[in-house]
Simulated scan of single mutants.
Amino acid sequence: MSSHATAYLTHYLSSHDVKYTILSHSAEGKSEEVAQIRGTHVGQGAKALVCKVKEKFTPQYVLAIVPGDTQLDFKQLAQAVGAKKISMASIDDVYALTQCIPGTVPPFSFHDDLKLVADPSLFERFDTIAFNACALDRSILLASADYLKLTTPFLVSIIKSNPVTS
C-alpha cells in the first residue's frame, strides 16, 4: 500500500549491505497463492502479525513473525511476553505502527512501541525467507541469516503445533 514504507524498507536493507531480491507480482493475500507466485515454499513466508497486549494500562503491541504454513498461538505469545491476553491489533493500529495495512506488513519493526517476536522454526527450516514489501504486489526474498543480523527478535515458539498446509 505505502510506497513510502516500501522505499524505507528497501533503503534500510540496502544501507546494511545485505543482498535481497524484490519481486513485483499480481496482488495476492493468501500465503499459499503468493508462495506459488514467488516460487517459494509456503513455510518460507514470514507472516507478520501485529498484535495488541490486552492490559488495563498503556497499550502494548507485538509484531509476531511466524512461518506462512503455520498459525499463531495467541496463548503462547501472551506467555512469552508476560501478558494475560493478546489479540490482533485494529487496522488503524497496524497502520499507525507500520505504515502498512494488514497482510502487507514486513517482518521488521521500525516503531519503538512494536516489540518484535519471531518463531525460530522459520529460520531453522529455510535459508531464505520471503515477505511482503509493504504491498500485496511486491515481495522480498532475504537470507534468514541476514534477517537475524539486522533484527533482534525475541525468538520463542509461538505457533500452533500442526502446520496449516504442507
Rank of each mutant, 00 (worst) to 15 (best):
V94M: 02
V62I: 12
H25I: 01
L116W: 12
V42E: 04
T128L: 08
T21E: 15
Q44R: 01
Q76Y: 02
Q99N: 15
P102T: 12
T152Y: 08
K85W: 07
E32Y: 00
L23H: 10
P163C: 06
P102D: 02
P107M: 09
I65N: 02
H11T: 15
V117E: 05
I65C: 08
L72R: 08
A118M: 01
L150W: 10
L13D: 07
D127L: 12
S24A: 13
V18Q: 04
T70M: 14
S139M: 11
L23K: 07
I22R: 14
F123W: 13
V105C: 09
A118Q: 08
K47W: 00
H16R: 13
L148D: 09
L150N: 13
H16S: 07
S14G: 06
Y8E: 14
L148H: 09
S2A: 11
T165L: 10
L63H: 04
S3E: 14
S15K: 14
I129Y: 01
L9K: 11
D93L: 12
T165N: 11
Q71T: 13
V156L: 05
K84I: 02
V164M: 05
D73M: 00
I140G: 09
S161D: 12
L77Q: 06
E32A: 07
K149L: 11
K54R: 13
S166C: 10
V164C: 04
V62G: 02
I86Q: 01
F154W: 10
S157Y: 07
G68V: 02
I129H: 01
E124H: 15
V18N: 05
D73W: 06
S15T: 13
S15V: 02
T6K: 14
H4I: 13
S121K: 14
